[in-house]
Amino acid sequence: MPAVLAIAIGLALAVMLFVPYVAQQYRRRGEFGIGNAALAFTGLLYGLGLIAYVLIPLPELTPDFCATSGMWPPQWVPFNFLHDMQKEAVGVGLGATLRNPALTQVLLNVSLFVPLGMFVRHMFGRSVAATTVIALACSLLIEVTQVTGIWFLYPCPYRLFDVDDLMANSLGGLAGALAAPVLRAVPGQRLTAEPGAPRPVTRSRRLLASLCDLLLFQLSTVLVSSICTVLGIFPTRQADQLAASWLPWFVLVIALPLAGSATSIGQRIVHLRVTTADGHPPGVGPRLVRSLAGTGGYLLLVQLGELPGGPSGLAAFSVLAGIFPVASLIGLFTTSGYRGLSCAAARLRMTDARTPLRQPDVVSA
């Protein structure tokens, strides 16, 4: 159950945090780095799993809770697990020792914090000593959470505070810190250029920008719909949903691209810029054409296809919305410079935003 819950929450958080993460990576590194993203997602799942392991399952709070499930006295004696091993010993020899439940518990507590040590040292650049201290602090937080009944949510502790767990977790953090260099072998982490240096426009970069735009639209729709529902701005839930979809579409697809450059928010996040063929900023007309021929056009078709109570001809928009991504993907692979259908329709080209714009020609008197 803790693992399933951690994965479910991790996937939801990954969707919500994806766009900010991409923006942070491009600001700090100048590129995405699939290896960094994989490690970040794995670290997120691990952290959530660790929290779920501490809290779940939550016992039912009954009138006789402390008498039946709680009142675990703290265990303050270091290396008390050796005494437990003697009590739990069955048989002799190495095999019997390794199967001893008390030793198994200690080894599991060590292994539980090995990933923490690896992630903290590799991803945050901490020293071995600092990583070990962080592991000790995290373990102490867990033990205090348990001894206080999840910070007094329960009237008495239902799990054991054990000083041996602190020692085992800290040892696991130390082992993870020493093993952290192994994570350097994960591909897709090395920078291909300095963060401020221009990089080539690639298909994967264009697709990443489109994914950011789609996620921003969906998250904005959920946010606006929730606000409309809570405030009761529109009389019906259906009206809330319409306003929640059309308002983000207008802001993200029409207002922002026309107010600034022709690029969408997703393209700005990945440091892409749209220019004319000779390197100048595009005018208003090409900006609008580019926006409607790209992700904005796809979202518009989706919106029109979902209009309630309209003529049956609106169903054609849903069909076109299904065809549009395929056509856009083909255009991305077939157009020069990976311009895609949107830039091709507007007679524009896509460049790296860190490439200096061409200055207007000065005509001498």
Rank of each mutant, 00 (worst) to 15 (best):
V22W: 12
A177C: 07
L258I: 02
L141G: 08
D278C: 00
A277C: 03
L94T: 07
P63C: 00
V163C: 00
G232F: 04
V114S: 04
L332D: 09
Y338T: 11
R121V: 04
L166V: 07
Q359I: 02
N109C: 01
L299C: 05
G10H: 09
Y46R: 10
G49C: 00
L215E: 03
V224C: 12
Q267E: 14
L357P: 01
V186F: 01
L39Q: 04
L329T: 05
T202N: 09
R268F: 05
F119L: 00
I330F: 15
L341I: 10
R273K: 15
Y26G: 00
A14G: 15
P115Y: 11
F161R: 11
L207K: 04
L223G: 01
W151G: 00
A193E: 06
A179G: 12
G260H: 00
L50K: 02
F119C: 00
C156Q: 09
I51S: 14
P282F: 14
A129I: 13
M123C: 03
M1Y: 14
L45K: 06
C212E: 08
F119E: 02
N36W: 09
I233S: 07
G232R: 07
G322K: 13
L252H: 09
T131D: 06
G283K: 02
F113R: 09
A40V: 08
C212F: 10
T355Q: 14
D162A: 07
D84C: 10
Y338R: 12
L48K: 12
L17H: 13
L39T: 08
W72A: 15
G310F: 06
R358N: 15
G172Y: 11
Q25T: 10
Y154R: 00
S111M: 12
R121F: 01
Y46L: 13
T97P: 05
G232I: 03
A345F: 08
A346R: 02
A185S: 15
T236D: 02
R121S: 07
A8K: 01
R339Q: 10
V253P: 03
G47S: 13
T42M: 08
V326P: 05
V128L: 03
H271K: 14
P311E: 11
S312N: 08
Y21K: 03
S318T: 14
P311A: 11
G117I: 02
Q105C: 04
G176S: 05
V224R: 13
A244H: 09
M16R: 12
R121N: 04
V251L: 15
S264K: 07
I227F: 11
L332G: 05
S127D: 06
P78S: 12
F113T: 12
W151S: 06
F250G: 11
F79L: 12
L247C: 14
G331D: 03
H271G: 08
A14E: 03
A197R: 05
F317Y: 14
S204F: 08
A259S: 04
Y46G: 08
S312Y: 09
D240T: 07
